[in-house]
Design a protein around this nucleic acid. Structure first.
Lengths: 307, 307
DNA sequence: CTGTTAGCGCATTCAC
DNA sequence: GTGAATGCGCTAACAG
């Protein structure tokens, strides 16, 4: 691979001039500019990114630590993020992690000057206190200032409103296993019920249950009547639909299933109504936070998506 | 962030010694070794990866260009690759691409010294001739020497054998839209039919049809009777199942659907029988190719997976 | 407008 | 065993 010296020599100018030309800075005689460009063309020269990084004290890499638990969701974020980043000529350094410990491990390994910033995506498990300059997307951890969160209250409200409009008033909820997201979802759920003057029935809500199957079993076993079921995401919805069918609780006739996060669903997937978050917006906001353009926690609202 | 000079000063040794200690090379007095380690600990020193890369002429980054068309499949590869790479203390630089042109574009942008090697994953579209040192995983392009391919012949044979064993002898095939993969799949299909003394019926095979819906429509319209349907992957299978159900062709009673690539399916997904490829093996082989340990095209066989 | 110089942080000679 | 010196390829400050 040719380097800046080769180009300088061939173009009969100094390294500095080559650098100036290729970095786009003004103040170079047109003649030498062309000479440099021609030489670079001939030698198929590309400035070495590593050397640039060392010199500028800034790699253009963003480390992205992606939770694997809800991988089909995270992949959507990943694509959206990559799109935003590559538009800004930044690179995405990917790590997967499935619990708090491995997230920390990944952070350690990426904190050696290789990345300009870090993002954690989709960690629905408790995270230890992280450095303030790490951006969180759709994670449980609420304390961090730099994060993009889904507006869970709004989502739950929207869901309940929709279901009530469909004459489903016995709405069950299998909530997040815990954390801020669970609380907020519950808030929106209760608030919306209140608006529709539907009495709140604690039996309809299953909380702190990590497994959907067990949660749903619990709900069914309790014997409480429900005509709609709110679950936290599409994979949960899919499992719920299959399980309900096994109990002759046909979907959507007897029970309408609603997914509180139906972003990034596949085209062919059997669709239940859902809240869809604007992945592009989320990614864009995250990248803004990374660039330090803003410094607060962002709340993103999703929209109702009907099959 | 502290640098090597800080550590050297605190440990009362020279930079060279610090470097030696942290690079693990022998030939350092135990006393100074401990001094260095202690100093590094105190200063929370981490060798700067960029500087190391520049000095060693080797970043530890592998560029991975991932096709988005069959993203749910590619994600599996991505996870497997990341696992293998991180085990070798290598980093994964991710780009997405959805056609030959954007693959080339990504390759250009990653060829600036930032990566030690490149991988293209899941490109089911024709690729231009690529540099020999790029590793292809599950791509259509057959000419390249460095690639890991799925054994399509074996897969089709296995599928047909299984279906025949289930008394399904009228086996339709909606093949890949084209390329080597289509030819090989066809070969395996015909070979297996031959073994079972089932006459080959051209009407049962749909080729060169990019859209599954249209392909399946074509098959149904032709009026030919089929009791089994081979499709190329899980997303196709899912669409096919839905569409068949709409035609009262219940699955699996009337038509048994079989996915020729059912790797990386989600736990709750409605499952049809499929060929499952060993993602870990594939990733491992790819990484071996990257390291230049071998230089041939690798063929990986999948195994039968029954729901 | 342009060339010279001095780093960026580290690994790697080569003497001692 | 160890330290001083050199260079990886580039950018930026400065002087002309």
């Amino acid at each position: 691979m040719s380097n800046i010296n080769d180009v300088a020599r061939l173009a009969q100018v100094s390294k500095a001039t080559v650098s100036r030309v290729l970095s786009g800075s003004r103040g170079v005689k047109e003649e030498s500019r062309l000479a440099v460009l021609r030489a670079a063309e001939i030698l198929n020269y590309k400035p070495n990114a590593i050397a640039q990084s060392l010199s500028c004290q800034s790699t253009n890499c963003i480390g992205v630590i992606c939770a694997t638990e809800h991988i089909q969701q995270s992949t959507g974020y990943l694509q959206a993020l990559e799109k935003q980043l590559s538009q800004q000529h930044k690179h995405l350094l990917l790590r997967f992690a499935n619990d708090g410990k491995s997230v920390m491990h990944a952070i350690q390994e990426l904190s050696n000057g290789m990345c300009d910033a870090l993002v954690v995506v989709g960690a629905r498990f408790p995270l230890p206190e992280l450095s303030e300059d790490i951006v969180l997307i759709d994670c449980l951890n609420p304390a961090n200032a730099n994060s993009v969160q889904c507006d869970r209250i709004f989502a739950a409200e929207t869901a309940v409103h929709y279901l009530c409009s469909q004459q489903r008033r016995n709405i069950a909820l299998i909530n997040f296993p815990g954390g801020e997201a669970a609380t907020l979802t519950m808030d929106g759920y209760r608030q919306a019920l209140h608006n529709y003057v539907v009495p709140f029935n604690r039996q309809l809500v299953i909380e702190n249950e990590p497994s959907l199957r067990i949660a749903l079993q619990k709900l069914i076993n309790s014997g409480v009547k429900f005509t709609a079921l709110l679950v936290t995401d599409d994979s949960q919805a899919q499992e719920a639909v299959m399980m309900l069918n096994q109990y002759q609780l046909t979907v959507p006739e007897k029970v309408m299933v609603f997914s509180l996060d139906g972003s990034t669903r596949l085209p062919g997937a059997n669709t239940v109504p859902a809240i869809e978050y604007p992945l592009e917006n989320i990614a864009r906001r995250a990248v803004e936070l990374l660039s330090g353009e803003r410094h607060n926690s962002d709340l993103v609202r999703g929209s109702l998506l009907i099959a």
